[in-house]
Nucleic acid binder design. Structure first.
Length: 684
RNA sequence: GCUGACGUAGCUCAGUCGGUAGAGCACAUCCUUGGUAAGGAUGAGGUCGUCGGUUCAAGUCCGAUCGUCAGCUCCA
C-alpha cells in the first residue's frame, strides 16, 4: 500500500523499503531509468513517451513522478495522464509496460479534467451551503462545466459569487481527490444513506459485471464518478460561475426540474480574464444587438413572436444575397420555381404532414368549406409540379429551386433572434434523379454549398452525416445506397465529418452543415436529405430506358438553410461590418463644410452612376461627429471632400476600422471599390 | 412547452422604505461652417408591456397574461 507523505499530494510517493533516487545521468541512455531502487528489490517496467522515447521506471511509479523527472514545469502543470490511451489520475501507479502521456491544460482531455474537477468543487461548495442538496450530473462541456442540483432554494445570479467564495475556501484546503472503488451494493448503501435518489438511479443503471463503481472524495465531499481528476483541489484556482438555469433530470421534461449552474475555470488568472473578455466581445457581435444598432431587422412584439421584419438596410443585404443565389443557381443547372403559400388539407394528408408534423403547423383556415394550411415546407408543391406530366429518364436530373417562405410553429421558448423563427424563407431545392445519378448530384450539392459559404466569407464549417434511425420508412437497400453516396461524396471532396448514427430523419439519411454563432452555439445551416417517403406517398415515377415505370430518388437540399438564419450568422461572422459588396451603404461622402457641398455632390453623383451605394451626409455637424457616426454604422468607406480635394479633384479616403488612407483621385478610388464589389472581396 | 430572470422615452439605462417619472444618446429648432470617433443652447418626447388585485396612495407589493433573455426539451 502506498503512503502519501506530507501535505502536498504532488510529492513523490514513498514506498516503504524502497529508496527512491533520482538517476543523475538521465539524458544519455536510450532507455532512461527515472527512478531506481536497491538492486535486489528492483522490478522495472518500460514506459514510452509521446515523442517515441522509452524510459525504464520502477514498477508502481506514478505518472506524476514521471512528469517530475522529465521536467519540474511539466510536473507543475500536469493535470491528468493517459496510460495506454486510457485517462487516469496522476497518482495511479503504473504496473506494467505502457505508453504514457502527461496531459496539461493545453490538451483537451486535460482541460476537461480540470473543468470536471471544478464542477466537483462547486458541488462541494453547494453541499456545504445547502446541506439538503441532491446532485444529478456534473460534466465538463465544450467550454467549462455544469452541475445539476436539486434544492428547494431558488438560486439566482446573486448567489453565484457566494458559491464562488465558498469554492475558494474549500480549494484553499487543498484536499486530494481520492479515488476508491466500491461494489454496487456498497455504493447503493452509501447513497441511500445520503438519500440521493439521482445517484442511486445512476448506480442502478450500471452493469454490475462490467462496470467498476468508483467514487471520488475531496475533503468532506464524495461523489459517484468515473474520474479522473486533478490531484488536488488546490490546483483549481481561477474560476467563474456564469449562469444558473433550469434543466431536467436525464433531460426528460417529464422528470423533476433541477437547477443547473454553469461555470468555467482556468489554471491561470490571465486565461480566465481573456476568456471572460472574449465572452464580452462575443456579446457585442450578437446579431440581435447588431440588428438593432444597424437598423437591419426587428421582431414586432405586438404582431407575433418569431416573425421577422426586414428594415431597408437588412432588406438591401437580403436582396443582394438572393440575387447572387439565383444567378448561381441558374449557372449550376437549376431552374427556379414559385409555389403558393397555402394548400388544401388533401395535400398535407397525402404528404403525411398532418399525420406526423401537425403540431408544428399553423392552424388551418376554412375557405369555401375546405381546410387550407399554411405551408411548413415546399416539397409537396414541387412534387405536384413534377407529377404534372409524364417524366422520362431523359429529363433527369431535375433540379428545382425556390426561395420558399414557410411557417412552422416553434415552441415559444426556442425562438432566438433570426436563428430560430416561426416564419422563414428556405433556399430550398429538390433534386429528382435516378440511382446512377445520385452520387454525382450529391457531390455537386456539396461543392455548390461550399462555394456559397466561401463567397460569403465562411471557412469554418462542420459536416455531419446522419444514418438510419430505428423508426424509418424505405427499404434497407435504398438506405444503404443513399448513405454510401453521401459518405463517398464527402470523402471524395476531402471533408471530415462526424457520424451521427441513427440521427437521420425517418424518411432518409442526410448531411448537415453546421456553423457556430458568436456565442459559440452551433446552428444547422445547409442540409442535404434523401427522401424515401414523399416519392412513395405521391407515387412519383419516371419512365426508364427499359420502358418501365421507376421511382425517382428525391433529395431536399438547402445551401444556406434559411435566409433568416443565414443573415443572422452572416451579421455575427462579420461583426456587422459587411464586405463591401454586401454593405447596405458602401460609401459615405462627407463635405468638410457647406462651402464644398457642390463638389461633394459631384463625387456622390459620379459614384452613383457606377451603381455604388453612396450616402451624401449634408447634416449640419462637424466632420468628427459624422465620421464617428458612419464608423459606428460600419460603412466600409468614407470620403472627405474639402478645399484640398476640390482643388486637386481628389477625395480623402477613410476605411472602416483602418482609418485615414489619404487623398487619391476619385477615379482611382472608384476603380478600387468597383473591383472589391465585382470580385466580392472579403476584407475582414 | 418547462425552470429562472427581466420588461420604465426611438435606443442604453437609473428610479432608495409604496407618496404620482429621470439621465445620456437619438430627434426638432436656433447658434456655430468645421479637416478624420461626440461644438453649444433651447425644446418636444412616457397611461412605467397588458389586465386584475391589495392600499388613502402602485413604476415599486401580489396574481394572471403577453413578450424578451439564459438554459432545458424539441427541431421533417
Amino acid at each position: 500500500m502506498q503512503k502519501v507523505r506530507g501535505s502536498n499530494p504532488l510529492e513523490p510517493t514513498e514506498v516503504p523499503g524502497y529508496g527512491i533516487y533520482r538517476f543523475k545521468n538521465l539524458l544519455n541512455s536510450e532507455i532512461t531509468p527515472i527512478f531506481y531502487k536497491r538492486k535486489e528489490l528492483m522490478e522495472n517496467i518500460k514506459i514510452t513517451l509521446p515523442d517515441g522515447s522509452a524510459r525504464e521506471v520502477e514498477k508502481g511509479t506514478t505518472p506524476f513522478q514521471v512528469a517530475e523527472a522529465i521536467s519540474g514545469r511539466l510536473a507543475k502543470e500536469a493535470l491528468v495522464a493517459k496510460v495506454d490511451g486510457k485517462l487516469v489520475d496522476l497518482q495511479t501507479p503504473i504496473n506494467s509496460d505502457a505508453e504514457l502521456q502527461i496531459l496539461t491544460f493545453k490538451d483537451p482531455e486535460g482541460q476537461h479534467t480540470y473543468w470536471h474537477s471544478t464542477s466537483h468543487l462547486m458541488a462541494h461548495a453547494v453541499q456545504e451551503m445547502y446541506p439538503e442538496a441532491k446532485f444529478g450530473v456534473g460534466p465538463a462541456i465544450e467550454s467549462g462545466f455544469y452541475y445539476d442540483i436539486d434544492i428547494d432554494t431558488k438560486l439566482s445570479e446573486e448567489d453565484l459569487p457566494k458559491i464562488e467564495k465558498k469554492m475558494h475556501q474549500i480549494a484553499e484546503q487543498n484536499n486530494m481527490f481520492k479515488r476508491s472503488e466500491l461494489s454496487k451494493k456498497e455504493a447503493e448503501e452509501l447513497w441511500t444513506k445520503k438519500g440521493d435518489q439521482y445517484k442511486l438511479e445512476l448506480i442502478e443503471g450500471l452493469d454490475d459485471e462490467k462496470d467498476v463503481i468508483s467514487i471520488y472524495g475531496e475533503g468532506e465531499f464524495t461523489d459517484l464518478c468515473t474520474g479522473p481528476h486533478v490531484p488536488s483541489a488546490g490546483k483549481l484556482k481561477y474560476f467563474k460561475l456564469l449562469s444558473v438555469s433550469g434543466s431536467y433530470w436525464r433531460g426528460d421534461e417529464k422528470n423533476k426540474s433541477m437547477q443547473r449552474i454553469y461555470g468555467i475555470s482556468f489554471p491561470k488568472q490571465k486565461m480566465l480574464e481573456e476568456h471572460l473578455h472574449l465572452l464580452e466581445e462575443a456579446k457585442k457581435r450578437d446579431h440581435r444587438k447588431l440588428g438593432k444598432q444597424l437598423d437591419l431587422f426587428s421582431v414586432q412584439e405586438e404582431a407575433g413572436p418569431g416573425l421577422i421584419y426586414w428594415h431597408p438596410k437588412g432588406a438591401r443585404v437580403r436582396h443582394l444575397i438572393e440575387a447572387f443565389w439565383k444567378d448561381a443557381h441558374y449557372d449550376n443547372g437549376y431552374e427556379m420555381l414559385y409555389s403558393p403559400h397555402v394548400g388544401k388539407k388533401w395535400l398535407w394528408e397525402t404528404s403525411g404532414h398532418l399525420e406526423n408534423y401537425k403540431e408544428n403547423m399553423y392552424a388551418p383556415m376554412t375557405i369555401d368549406d375546405q381546410d387550407y394550411f399554411i405551408k411548413p415546407m415546399n416539397c409537396p408543391f414541387h412534387i405536384l409540379m413534377y407529377k404534372g406530366q409524364l417524366r422520362s429518364y431523359r429529363d433527369l436530373p431535375l433540379r428545382w429551386a425556390e426561395l420558399g417562405t414557410v411557417y412552422r410553429y416553434e415552441k415559444s421558448g426556442v425562438l432566438h433572434g433570426l436563428l430560430r423563427v416561426r416564419g422563414f424563407t428556405q433556399d430550398d431545392a429538390h433534386i429528382f434523379c435516378t440511382q446512377e445519378q445520385i452520387e454525382d448530384e450529391i457531390i455537386e450539392v456539396i461543392r455548390f454549398s461550399m462555394f456559397m459559404w466561401k463567397s460569403f466569407g465562411f471557412e469554418d464549417i462542420k459536416f455531419y452525416l446522419s444514418t438510419k434511425p430505428e423508426k424509418a420508412v424505405g427499404e434497407d437497400d435504398l438506405w444503404d445506397k443513399a448513405i454510401h453516396s453521401l459518405r463517398n461524396a464527402l470523402e471524395k471532396e476531402g471533408y471530415d465529418y462526424e457520424l451521427d448514427e441513427g440521427g437521420g430523419a425517418f424518411y432518409g439519411p442526410k448531411i448537415d452543415l453546421k456553423v457556430r454563432d458568436a456565442l459559440n452555439r452551433e446552428w444547422q445551416m445547409s442540409t442535404i436529405q434523401f427522401d424515401f417517403n414523399l416519392p412513395e406517398r405521391f407515387d412519383m415515377t419516371y419512365i426508364g430506358e427499359d420502358g418501365n415505370q421507376h421511382r425517382p430518388y428525391m433529395v431536399h437540399r438547402a445551401l444556406l438553410g434559411s435566409i433568416e438564419r443565414f443573415f443572422g450568422v452572416l451579421i455575427e461572422h462579420h461583426g456587422g461590418a459587411f464586405p463591401t459588396w454586401l454593405a447596405p451603404v458602401q460609401v459615405a461622402v462627407i463635405p468638410v463644410s457647406q462651402v464644398f457641398f457642390d463638389y461633394a455632390k459631384s463625387v456622390v453623383d459620379e459614384l452613383k452612376k457606377s451603381g455604388i451605394r453612396v450616402e451624401f451626409d449634408q447634416r449640419n455637424e462637424k466632420i468628427g461627429y459624422k465620421i464617428r457616426d458612419w464608423e459606428t454604422q460600419k460603412v466600409p468607406y468614407m470620403l472627405i471632400a474639402g478645399e484640398k480635394e476640390m482643388e486637386a479633384g481628389t477625395v480623402s479616403v477613410r476605411q472602416h476600422k483602418v482609418g485615414d488612407l489619404g487623398a487619391q483621385p476619385l477615379q482611382e478610388f472608384k476603380d478600387k471599390v468597383l473591383n472589391e464589389i465585382n470580385n466580392k472581396v472579403i476584407n475582414n
